[in-house]
């Protein structure tokens, strides 16, 4: 039986009169690929933000590695092995692609970042380039971030998040802002890299073709609640999901 790696139980979150998360409960098995769907404001990103420490839930628990991580700082959660990418790629614009990767490597390094060890150390550069090659963006290594296309930025954002000892990867709309003909190649690359390491993946997505192709289980959000939780084919046939999420007739 597969071990549960993340357990969210009865989580609630309100912003004033707006309820962003209402009795959210879900158990994520190790190595699974989950997708979160729902219209804008349904609570998907709130879920990701609560799991990664950006937002503290009002109540409920989020258990990971035998600890309740609800309310912990993002960096503490990251160090425990829950990493994330962002809807708008969060990169350092004044650094090159390779330096962004070196940054991730320096922070995630086994001995922690050093005051003496050179950031551009040859071994660190080799590791950075190897990761960039895995995501097929090594050719851009010397370019500054503002010079990159949306797809390359997304891949770099995910590659940086993957530099550490990742156990769960949360991807917030990995293909948003990416040209339509780049979406599947990018997802193929990302999923191949993630699956090869056995990482548990939770991704937020609006494109149902991507949801059905890459996820094993789908959580459909509406008005801060999970209205469906099942295999992609089952969820997409759910009348409530069709009415509130996909907009397709029942």
């Amino acid at each position: 039986m597969t071990r549960t790696v993340l357990e969210v139980r009865d989580v609630q979150k309100s912003f004033g009169a707006v309820t962003a998360a209402k009795d959210i409960s879900v158990a994520v098995p190790e190595g699974a690929v989950f997708s979160l769907i729902g219209s804008n404001g349904a609570g998907k990103t709130t879920f990701v933000n609560m799991v990664t420490g950006y937002i503290k839930p009002d109540s409920g628990s989020i258990r990971f590695a035998d600890r309740d991580i609800a309310g912990m700082a993002p960096r503490q959660i990251t160090r425990m092995g829950i990493h994330r990418s962002f809807q708008i790629a969060q990169l350092c614009n004044d650094l090159t692609v390779e330096e962004n990767m070196l940054l991730a490597g320096a922070i995630h390094g086994a001995s922690g970042p050093s005051f003496l060890r050179r950031a551009h150390d040859p071994e660190a550069r080799d590791r950075a380039v190897a990761t960039l090659e895995r995501f097929n963006i090594a050719e851009h290594r010397d370019r500054l971030v503002p010079e990159l296309s949306g797809g390359v930025k997304k891949l770099l954002d995910i590659a940086m998040a993957m530099a550490g000892d990742t156990q769960i990867m949360l991807l917030d709309e990995p293909t948003s802002g990416v040209a339509s003909d780049e979406k599947f190649p990018i997802m193929d690359l990302v999923m191949e890299a993630l699956r090869s390491t056995g990482v548990t993946v939770i991704f937020v997505e609006h494109d149902m073709d991507i949801v059905t192709r890459y996820s094993e289980r789908v959580l459909a959000f509406y008005d801060g609640r999970i209205i469906a939780d099942d295999a992609p084919d089952e969820v997409l046939l759910d009348p409530e999901v069709q009415r509130y999420v996909t907009g397709t007739p029942a």
């Binding site: 990664t52 960096r75 990251t78 962002f86 350092c92 922070i107 995630h108 970042p113 940086m160 550490g164």
Partner: peptide, 8 residues
């Protein structure tokens, strides 16, 4: 934000 989410 990026630095914090890398764990520093």
């Amino acid at each position: 934000l990026r630095v914090e989410y890398l764990g520093a």
